[in-house]
Design a protein around this nucleic acid. Structure first.
Lengths: 236, 236
DNA sequence: CTCTGTGAAGTCATTCACAGCG
DNA sequence: CGCTGTGAATGACTTCACAGAG
């Protein structure tokens, strides 16, 4: 076990490993080798061992990893053993779609509030879970009352930085941003941006040059699918 | 102008530069230096010059870049001078939210079809643009008839690989995948995955260890916000 | 004198390769 | 003997630093 700084590429992969382990466990499988895991993602097995090695020695030589054990360890490492409470700023289409996305609840994230500045929306409840929509001005209070620790920004780019500032003022330390804007956060606040426009435009580049992308990640006739996570580097 | 292979990190940044140039143009500004652009993203100016340098010499020494000129060049490089037609597979919440997302039309992407296997949905039309929902079995025909060149996968992880196979069989070469699954594509097909669960779990890691993420990208007291694109690397 | 374009250096990430445990 | 854990080697991306154009 070392004490190095862990890159986001690694944490993204840990999340993917965990998902895979959950599937394997559901299939009744008890152990898996780094090689076996690696094949699921067209990844190098040393990569997996290195990623895990930052946090401890979870494997058994000659055998591999006990799935239940590794699963528990990864869950703990990723901080998923405690539930997270999510607030979504922007009750438009994207915001409400995310509020009802089932994928989140599976991994201990519960959406407990939406925020909007449209008075038509404030006071209403959204989706089968009846998530309340609050006035965006009440962020600080609702964050405190509801114990929100993660916010999602789903507002137009124009106002995204202002919203981020409000969210930071409410002392939220983790933000997932869907606005196509370069945001600046203060130290200690982690912002991850998911930029659909950029993703599509990047695809467009490869469409325009079919030869591009051939060489990278090609292996055994398949192409490794991107971003074993969200891709990204440098936060990129 | 060289002839090297361009990484996805670079194409992601090009998209971000283009967006910024559009904003600057709208503000009536005529020229910008790499330094000026870099400050918008907390990026190194050499990075920007290098990214552009892969494609030509667009700058003027002593001056910087003419915004209109660079904008036209980037648009061409990214293949955004020709319109793209998008089909979305999965007419659930996420799929319909994306179908109505205005951000796409802005950059020459038009959503022209949704696909679903739920017969309740097939035949209906979605949103203010009345986008038709087709039976997923008809993908190949609709792709041909409508000239679709990009598909979005917004279905449960369980069926994502099957859907990708159908999409590839319809000869679509660019796919944006929202399903939390490691997909395998054949050579010549580019898949970019946006994985919300992984993004959130990665945030959870940093919440669990506030000291993590401190060192990276810190500069002048601010933290560069991640993934100037979709973050990532290795398509990642 | 300013700012680009670009080799060279530096930094960070992935893969190799193997010692050594079970 | 198989498979982990890990230093060493390689490769990729970023930043430095400066020659030279305007």
């Amino acid at each position: 076990m070392k004490r190095e700084k862990i890159s986001e590429l690694t944490t993204n992969r840990l999340s993917v490993y965990l998902r895979c382990l959950n599937d394997l466990a559901a299939a009744g499988i008890k152990t898996v080798s780094s090689q076996g895991l690696a094949e699921q993602f067209n990844l190098n097995s040393a990569q997996i061992r290195k990623d895990l090695g930052y946090f401890g020695e979870f494997g058994v030589r000659g055998v591999g990893y006990f799935i239940d054990d590794l699963r528990a360890n990864l869950t703990k490492i990723l901080g998923l053993d405690k539930p997270h409470r999510v607030g979504i700023v922007g009750a438009g289409r994207l915001g409400t779609a995310l509020a009802n996305y089932n994928g989140l609840s599976k991994s201990n994230f519960a959406v407990v509030a939406l925020f909007d500045n449209d008075h038509e929306k404030v006071g209403h409840h959204v989706g089968p879970d009846r998530i309340p929509v609050y006035d965006v001005k009440k962020i600080a209070k609702v964050v405190r009352d509801e114990g929100i620790d993660v916010c999602v920004i789903a507002v137009p780019a124009r106002v995204a930085q202002r919203v981020l500032n409000q969210v930071m003022a409410a002392d939220v330390k983790a933000v997932l941003n869907f606005a196509p804007a370069a945001l600046t956060a203060r130290l200690g606040v982690k912002v991850k941006t998911v930029d659909l426009t950029t993703s599509l435009q990047s695809l467009s580049y490869f469409l325009a040059r079919p030869q591009a992308g051939r060489l990278t990640n090609a292996r055994r006739g398949v192409v490794r699918v991107d971003e074993i996570a969200t891709s990204d580097r440098r936060d990129a």
